[in-house]
Nucleic acid binder design. Structure first.
Length: 166
DNA sequence: ATAAATCACAACG
DNA sequence: CGTTGTGATTTAT
């Protein structure tokens, strides 16, 4: 597992790769971010990993700008449970600028009553932004929650042109 | 292995 | 508004 930084206008994201693909994506600790790192570790990266990382960088920057990523690196979701992977697969079907409710996702994975469990799966999502858990709102349009902070979720939706209920 | 506690929901009175 | 019905995951026996 190797970790590579991604410089963005919102700060430095951290991408964690297993040998199967992108396994996790961490938000910058602080929003104002973009602080130069103390020292470049000069990690040893394979050619394939570098290719993945280039795709990740482009995808993250597109998502931050409210645009749909052109391509994604392979995602390593092996850490998730069966149910979580089903939920995450549904999340990836949500188009940029669109939203679903937790209930919609629950129905889509076959358990219309498992709405709360869906919320749990969203919170366990290791790759926010590329797996767009921020496009999932409560049934009445309320924002719900977000692992990276509610204001971050609101801002992402705003950039995609989505109005959130007050 | 089993049970209780937790949760980023939803529906109802 | 508070309550209650839910299902998966996590934590504690």
């Amino acid at each position: 597992m190797t970790t590579l930084p991604i410089e963005t206008s919102d700060g430095v994201f951290l991408a964690h790769y297993s040998d199967a693909g992108l396994a996790a994506l961490g938000f910058p600790a602080s929003r104002a971010g973009a602080r130069p790192k103390p020292a470049a570790p000069a990690v040893k990266v394979s050619a394939s990993l570098r290719a993945w990382h280039r795709l990740t960088e482009r995808a993250v920057n597109a998502a931050l700008g409210g645009r749909a990523p052109a391509a994604l690196p392979p995602l390593d979701l092996s850490a998730g449970t069966d149910f979580q992977r089903r939920v995450w697969a549904e999340l990836r079907k949500i188009e940029t600028g669109a939203t679903r409710s937790y209930g919609d996702i629950a129905a889509a994975v076959g358990n219309p009553r498992a709405v709360r469990a869906v919320g749990g799966a969203c919170g366990a999502n290791p790759i926010p932004l590329l797996i767009p858990c921020h496009r999932v709102l409560a049934a009445d349009g309320r924002i719900g929650g977000f692992s990276g902070g509610l204001d971050r979720k609101r801002e992402l939706l705003r950039r995609e042109g989505v109005a959130v209920a007050g």
